[in-house]
Each structure stands twice: as C-alpha cells, then as structure tokens.
C-alpha cells in the first residue's frame, strides 16, 4: 500500500469517478487480479490494453453513435456552408421573432436572423472551445501531474501546492472575474481561461496514475535492471497512466462546452460577431424572450445538449473500454 494518499480531491464528479477507479484497482490488486465472472474468453490472443479497448469500442453502439455525431459536428464546424447557404450575419430586423416559414425552417431570432443558419454556424465555437480547451487542459495537466508523480520529493510538493492553489478557485467564479477583465473575448480567450483553471483536475489524476504505475512490479523490475528514467517513463509508465487522463478529459470536454454557454449567460462569454449557441441560448433566456418565440431557445439549446451528450457518451464508452474491471 502506498504511504502517499491517492489523488483524492475536491474535483467534482470526474474526480470522484476516478477515486472510484483507484479504489477498484486497489481492490483488484488485493484479490490477486482474479478475472471477474464475465472475464475474457479463454482462446483470445494476447492484446494490449489499447487493442482490447478498440476491439470493444467498435462493437459498442453508444460509441458508434457518439462518434458519428461528433464526426458530423466537426465537419460542419469546418465547413458550415455544406448545409447552410445563408449568411449568419445578415439579418432583417423587420422579421424579428417570426416563426418558421418555408426556407427558414427554424424561424427568426430577435434580431431577425435565420435561426437555422445560426445554429449551424454556432457549432464551430462550441466544438472549438470544447476540443481545444480539453487538449490544453490534458497537455498542461498531465505534464505537470506526471512530473510531480514521477519525480516525487520536492518537485511533487511544489507542483502539488501550485495545483492546489489553482484548484482552490471555483471555476465559475474565476471565469466571472478573469473574463470580465479581458475586453475583447474571442474563442481563444475562453479556451485559455478554461486551461488556466481546468488543468489541476487532470494534474491530480495524472499524478495519482503515475504513482500507481510506478509501484507496479514490472516497473520496479525495470528499475532494478537499470532502465533509464526516459525509457521507464515512455515504455512503462506513460502507457498505463494515460488511460485515466483520457477518460477524465473526454467527459470534461462536454462540461466545458456547457461552461461556455453558462459564461455567456453571466455576460462574460463569447461575443458577436462570433456565432455561438451559448450566446443564442442566453439571449433567449434573458428576460424570458423565449416566451414570445420558443424556437429561439429550443433549437440552439437542443444543438448544445446534443453535442455535450455526444462527447459525454464518447467519454463513457471509452472509460468502460479502458477499465477491464467493467468488461
């Protein structure tokens, strides 16, 4: 048993899930890694964790649906004109809040813009925020967390305290303060803010995962055989530590997209001319504008929820695939 406590933290849901995973992996170690009753079949060839996971994922309908949905979202984020022919910024105030008509399937918003076109163009902001923020958080978090876990000692103490400092700032509150300072908020401002306050979550998980991986017999054996730090890190520790990071990151991705919308609601999110679901939803909610025209809330909200859903489903499927205990 480790003398250092595992990365149990006040990190909200995702951390707690990780807590649970950590607990179960220890339980696994304790009962001698006996396969569960539904364990792998006898005649399977030896596959790595990743090959195993991929094998599972391809057969998981939830994963397939989510992946297709995400593929579609990425496509229209890159080329919105594929399915929307109008210009999202040309609006006629005279048609403010008009309901759906032929050619304008989703009706018009307060400014008289075509809601369908705005929903299609809004995908780019949400997907970019989600994907880039997650990539940044995962990169910074796993780098710092990994360093802390691998080297331990002073490094660990130092990095862990810095992690705690950023962890101590509630993200919504930090967003309100941080983003009201920045005058011109683009997608990249929001992304860098999320990275700034989001990385500790991953760092804690990465640190815990690396510490666990370091304790494994084969790593100890490699060390005893005189393997270099780099080799141990690359060959043994990283492949094992990366799974929990990926799982947490994919689930976090969905929450970041929702966070962007909430920040817009609080008045510190993205701003025009960036077309974003968050801005559209908060416009519709503010002053209960949606009473006059439900379509201005329903369509962007549905698009947002569907996107978040797709990423969370993906994260779920990946976690199930990477956690052998659940197989």
């Amino acid at each position: 048993m480790t003398s250092e406590p595992p990365a149990v933290g006040a990190g909200g849901a995702m951390d707690a899930m990780n807590v649970m995973n950590a607990a179960s992996s220890e339980a696994r170690a304790a009962d001698g890694a006996s396969p569960g009753p539904e364990g792998p079949g006898p005649a399977r060839e030896v596959r790595s964790l990743w090959q195993d996971a991929w094998h599972d994922l391809r057969r998981n309908p939830i994963f397939v649906i989510a992946a297709l949905l995400i593929l579609f979202l990425v496509l229209i984020s890159l080329w919105p004109s594929l399915i929307a022919t109008r210009n999202p910024l040309s609006c006629q105030l005279g048609r403010s809040l008009e309901p759906a008509t032929a050619g304008h399937w989703f009706g018009f918003d307060t400014q008289g813009c075509d809601v369908y076109t705005k929903v299609v163009y809004g995908a780019r902001a949400s997907v970019t925020v989600g994907v880039c923020a997650t990539a940044g958080v995962a990169l910074v978090g796993s780098l710092l967390g990994g360093l802390a876990g691998f080297f331990g000692g002073v490094w660990d103490a130092l990095i862990s305290r810095v992690t705690d400092i950023f962890f101590g700032i509630p993200i919504m509150l930090g967003g309100l303060v941080f983003l009201s300072v920045t005058g011109n908020r683009s997608i990249w401002t929001v992304v860098s803010f999320i990275v700034l306050l989001g990385w500790p979550q991953i760092a804690r998980i990465a640190r815990g995962a690396v510490i666990t991986a370091k304790q494994n017999d084969y790593v100890l054996a490699a060390r005893a055989l005189g393997a270099s730090n780099t080799r141990m890190l690359v060959r043994h520790i990283l492949p094992n530590a990366v799974a929990p990071v990926i799982v947490t990151a994919t689930i976090a991705l969905g929450t970041y997209i929702a966070l962007e919308a909430t920040l817009s609601f609080l008045g510190v999110g993205l701003q025009p001319p960036t077309v974003s679901w968050g801005v559209d939803i908060s416009d519709a909610s503010q002053g209960m504008q949606f009473r006059n025209a439900p379509h201005i809330l329903v369509y962007p909200a549905a698009a947002l929820s569907l996107t978040v859903l797709a990423f969370i489903m993906l994260g779920d499927a990946v976690r199930d695939a990477l956690d052998p205990k659940l197989r």
């Binding site: 210009n87 910024l89 040309s90 006629q92 983003l179 009201s180 005058g183 011109n184 008045g267 510190v268 701003q271 025009p272 001319p273």
Partner: peptide, 16 residues
Amino acid sequence: NSALDKDNACRVNPVP
C-alpha cells in the same frame, strides 16, 4: 451593415 451592404462594417463590442 445592411445600409452599407457589408457584413463587417459595424461590430459590437460588449463590455461586461
């Protein structure tokens, strides 16, 4: 914008 027939002639800059 519509008077000038240009998409980005005018831009909104909301300050929180």
